[in-house]
Design a protein around this nucleic acid. Structure first.
Length: 163
DNA sequence: ATCTTAACTGTGT
DNA sequence: ACACAGTTAAGAT
């Protein structure tokens, strides 16, 4: 049996998010796309995954509302060692707390890899729950965001962060 | 305060 | 080997 990922939707006040699961846990989370894929039919998801999905949905809504999620589903992120170590640092950022790309780089022992850290953030498969939006530029400005600057601003604003 | 330039590093092709 | 990216610090205007 091959490794297949199951795709489930989450309805939020901000739109319809799409979550992807492997049999290890949550492997991806996507911002609402223009086209809302209706996927009511087909094989129902395994109970294990539906359980994770509840946690994901609840956590996502919490962060969107500017609150701290109570619990997270197991995260099944795949990537380079470098990237994983970056994401590990991101998970330590709490609500309203921000760090610069340089600070993250220093935290993983590669103080000069600031630019690469930016790349790692952009490659983050699970935005919002892995708070890549809490990484800002060193000069106090916002920095970039692969999911669209509107999201980054909105998420930070919900947490009371001013830029 | 804003613009330009020059380093720097991990990844994908 | 090369070009790119969610950077940065320093210098010029």
């Amino acid at each position: 049996m091959k490794k297949q990922t199951i795709e489930l939707m989450i309805a939020t006040p901000e739109g319809l998010f799409r979550a992807c699961y492997s049999d290890e846990g949550l492997s991806g989370l996507n911002f609402p796309e223009g086209r809302a894929r209706r996927r009511c039919a087909g094989a129902p998801a395994p109970r294990k995954i539906r359980h994770w999905h509840r946690a994901t949905a609840s956590a996502l809504k919490a962060v969107l509302a500017g609150r701290e999620p109570k619990r997270l589903p197991p995260l099944a992120t795949e990537g380079t060692e470098f990237r994983k170590s970056v994401w590990e640092q991101l998970r330590k950022l709490r609500r309203g707390e921000t760090k610069s790309y340089g600070q993250i780089a220093a935290a993983i022992g590669r103080p000069a890899a600031v630019r690469a850290v930016g790349g790692a953030c952009g490659a983050n498969p699970i935005p919002v729950l892995v708070p890549c939006h809490r990484v800002v530029a060193a000069n106090g400005k916002a920095g970039g965001f692969s999911g669209g600057m509107e999201w980054k601003r909105k998420l930070l604003a919900r947490e009371g962060v001013r830029i």
